[in-house]
Design a protein around this nucleic acid. Structure first.
Lengths: 240, 240
DNA sequence: ACCTTATGACAACACCGTTGACCTGTTAAG
DNA sequence: CTTAACAGGTCAACGGTGTTGTCATAAGGT
């Protein structure tokens, strides 16, 4: 068998599919994203994607070695779209807060694609840009290199993880989602104080707090802790 | 069609499968967990589970409406097991740290269940116990009720979100996972300093830090921030 | 002893990712 | 121009998946 996937640069002999579509990596990724947005992540399969493109499913294997490869391409495209609308101001806390909230919002906007991109390192252009930018913010703020990496890592993973978490629950089928929301009201609030004193005591807070995302709060806690460390470093600088 | 799933209380006519096994919800969940532990998360399918149990796959649908239901049952069992090996000492920071790390480790050991349980409220017994226990630790430490709920929410979501994130990457098929790990060494480290100064400057830290989970670091940051707030409250108490 | 019905088994359905073999239009070389 | 190579599209098949409609039967209540 000749090698299935050809590097994009060497692609020349493009010819239309039976249904008249000229395939390309970009078109495939764009169509995949559209599919995910319109019908959910479960709607993304090689076969369905092929159908949506007007091509035989197996054609896709000329562009991506396996579905995994395709996922990475999709993930990187998402990172790129998010980063394009963000520009650092110089205030590291504000910049990280803004970026975090933006990434989180982006995840919620593409609920089912967010899950895919959360746990993969793509090593592609957009991801690299993002890493460079965030590290720049932290080092510019005065974090020593090792600490900058540590904070970067926690920040990025926290944002991606919450993005995936929150968008997963957003993406639940309608009735299931309503059921989730009502568990707090229906089950937890009713627990008697003698067997579950702590839940009973905080019931009204639970009902108010739990249905909302805790990402903004968690982000603020992380920024607080990072700021505290920064002032500690500034008081007693550390060799790097 | 008669309703497929019968509430456990109403189960009476237990009869052995062709291979002589007497099914039960507990046995199914236990076997599923064993399968995951022994052969990885991908080894869990209705058909394989049936084979492992010595029963027809379709029999499982007498106990669980769909695989999702089964996953939730597994998830709750996991919460239970995690909680069972944890006993609060009275030092709230140590207790939360210990519980967080335990939950995270539990998630890593059972990736598929972890992903599901991260964004679902099961409302089952073990989950309720966990909520009660964590709230107890926080209120015992002196957090006002509203703040206790806020910290609880951030703590639990962060733990579950990181659990899902990290277990998703450990659940990657072998080669894909190896590829992930090498991206930092192969791609990022090689970026020239003139185009990517921040990555180049921190390259050795990135290689050391990124392949590991950032959960322990993120947890510590959260505990730091919470402790800072606690002392603030203790200095100037707040009506609740 | 009988009747009901819970529960297990079976077969079938509609999907899935992936691959090897085949065919054909595009392209570059002569 | 002609032609030979081969990129890239198509087809059919493999072995897997979750799920369901139907049927047989053994357990339990009466």
């Amino acid at each position: 068998m000749t090698e299935r996937v050809v590097p994009p640069a060497a692609r020349r002999r493009r010819r239309p599919t039976k249904q008249g579509v000229v395939l390309s990596e970009e078109l495939i990724v764009a169509t995949a994203l559209r599919l995910i947005e319109e019908h959910g992540a479960d709607a993304l399969s090689v076969r369905r994607l092929g159908r949506a493109l007007g091509a035989d499913p197996s054609s896709l294997y000329r562009y991506f070695r396996h579905t995994d490869d395709l996922m990475l391409a999709i993930a990187d495209e998402l990172i790129g779209r998010t980063l394009r609308t963000w520009s650092p101001t110089g205030d590291w806390r504000a910049d990280l807060r803004e970026l975090g909230l933006r990434m989180h919002a982006g995840a919620l906007a593409h609920p089912r694609a967010a899950v895919l991109s959360s746990y993969r390192v793509t090593g592609r252009v957009h991801e690299i840009e993002a890493v460079e930018a965030i590290l720049g913010v932290l080092r510019g703020a005065g974090f020593p290199d090792a600490e900058a990496v540590r904070i970067y890592h926690a920040f990025v993973d926290q944002t991606l993880a919450f993005g995936a978490l929150d968008s997963a629950s957003t993406a639940l089928p309608g009735p299931a989602r309503a059921a989730e929301a009502s568990v707090w009201r229906a089950t937890y609030v009713r627990l008697p104080a003698d067997t579950h004193p702590n839940i009973a005591a905080t019931a009204r807070h639970l009902v108010a707090d739990m249905p909302r995302s805790s990402y903004p709060a968690a982000l603020e806690l992380l920024l607080d802790a990072a700021a505290a460390r920064l002032t500690a470093f500034q008081r007693r600088p550390v060799a790097d």
